[in-house]
């Protein structure tokens, strides 16, 4: 293992240090570790190039010199290799380190940790005293989160089994546009290829693996697509008028568009989209709320209450 990594490090150093393109022959002649016949050296080098690229190192090909030979040369441009965050202060480093630490023990921990090591290698001391004491924590997610991130960045389709309301599983194929966490859960949204419509998914309802399509760049993310505003948009279509008891139902009051004082009660108007979900949250508040409008919502509540009285039995 160390021989191979030693060769890869030496190759990186040589390609970084050179001011001109190095030909394959120069590489084989000068860099330690290329052994065997021409064919096996060739194979080793091809693999090494792929390996360095998989680490995100850009290797440039060029320098065809017509006078001497036709051979391609290779180099790594220092400006592509090195981290350059522009002018950066100790307070900035502290903020970025805090941002990385939010992933402690969470899905992107390894990735955030490697970012943190790079930040600590810049040579600027983190000025922790310049920022308030905070303990941010990312919402937990399965390891599948990494696949969603990769799909969004490479613009690849993803396929997965999704748990529907009735617990049945559906196979979905999505072009993912955005990823967000809210209220302790991760959501991703994108184009549902079969339904040809934008859909939002909760990551913990995905069953099993999220499989990435082999092809990259299969879609374009609409500019300005924002999952939060998308969630909000679909969450606000109808308006209900509800009486709420004074000093009660804070969760509903928080979402109220307006509040009118009616003595023992307040009358609030509130936006909702999915009647089933809204009904649940109204029922949660028991006798502290009374729906005035719309009529269909009132009727559904009355139906539910009748059912509850029946199934729980009369005294």
């Amino acid at each position: 293992m160390s021989r191979k990594s030693e060769r890869l490090v030496n190759l990186t150093i040589a390609l970084l240090a050179t001011r001109r393109y190095l030909t394959k022959n120069e590489i084989f002649r000068t860099i330690e570790g290329y052994e065997g016949n021409d064919e096996s050296k060739e194979r080793m080098f091809e693999r090494d190039k792929d390996d360095l690229r998989s680490l995100g190192i850009e290797i440039e090909v060029g320098g065809f010199d017509p006078i001497f030979n036709d051979e391609a040369g290779y180099r790594i441009k220092p400006e592509n290799y090195a981290l350059d965050l522009g002018e950066i202060s100790g307070s900035d480093i502290a903020l970025l380190s805090l941002a990385a630490s939010a992933w402690n023990g969470q899905a992107l921990n390894a990735i955030a940790h490697s970012a943190l090591l790079k930040l600590k290698s810049i040579g600027i001391d983190s000025d922790i005293d310049s920022i308030p004491t905070l303990a941010p924590r990312m919402a937990s997610a399965s390891s599948e989160l990494v696949n969603v991130v990769e799909a969004i960045t490479t613009k690849s389709a993803i396929t997965f089994e999704y748990m529907a309301q009735d617990l049945s599983q559906q196979k979905r194929t999505i072009h993912p546009y955005a990823l967000a966490s809210r209220d302790g859960h991760w959501y991703f949204a994108g184009l549902d290829v079969d339904k040809n419509a934008i859909r939002t998914f909760r990551l913990d309802r995905v069953q099993g693996e999220i499989v990435l399509g082999k092809k990259m760049d299969v879609f374009v993310i609409p500019t300005g697509f924002d999952l939060f505003s998308h969630l909000d948009e679909t969450v606000s279509q109808k308006i209900a008028t509800v009486d709420v008891r004074k000093d009660k139902a804070f969760a509903l009051r928080k979402q109220a568009l307006s509040i009118i004082d009616k003595g023992e009660w307040d009358q609030i108007s509130i936006k909702y989209s999915d009647q089933t979900t809204f009904l649940d949250s109204l029922l949660w508040h028991l006798d502290d709320v009374l729906v005035i409008e719309p009529l269909e919502l009132r009727d559904s509540i009355i139906d539910v209450l009748r059912t509850m009285v029946v199934v729980h039995g009369k005294k």
Binding site: L108, A115, K118
Partner: peptide, 22 residues
């Protein structure tokens, strides 16, 4: 090799999410 390597896209995303969170 003295300078740290540039952040890859996944690392950037982990930091962006972290910054948005705080």
């Amino acid at each position: 090799l003295k300078s740290p390597r540039t952040l890859n896209v996944e690392e950037v995303i982990s930091l962006l999410l972290g910054l948005d969170l705080i």
